[in-house]
Amino acid sequence: MAFKPSKSKRNLGKEEGTLNMNSMMDMMTIILLFLLKSFSTEGALVTPSQQLRLPVSTAAEKAKKQVSVSIAKDALLVNDEPLISTNEIPKDQMLIPALAMKLSDYAKQERDLEVEVGKVFNHEIIIEGDEKIPFELLFKVMFTCSKSDFYKMRLLTIKKG
């Protein structure tokens, strides 16, 4: 014998319900506020890699986009273009000739810009060094920078905390 359809369950499926989105809205608002706080229009200055881990510092000065020299574990880069490998850096002299030439080119470009469009050449250069590079290498790069007319050096670091 077939069962008789239950009278009390007849209207069960037709009931209209609404999704309660209040808590979701709260969550979204908090996420939105957090993201607005960490909003930056400057974009990434560096792309992290195994070969280039920036040292950690408490310095508070904000970084700006400039000509940059990166000293990775195995290579030297100028504006993210590989220049020479660290093995090719001369051991017995302070100046790194390849870097000096490249930087002189940039200095010349900047000077031309200063003459043509009035963009002031501020002699600033960003040095992105791996946390493990020896002082000697850092010093050679800094020496070369100052010889090539970029004497205001900014050491890029990751802010602590």
Partner: peptide, 16 residues
């Protein structure tokens, strides 16, 4: 567009 890693700089001004 959020900045996940806060970068900062240390200024060193060497005389020309």
């Amino acid at each position: 567009s959020a900045e996940w890693v806060k970068l900062s700089i240390i200024e060193i001004n060497v005389p020309p």
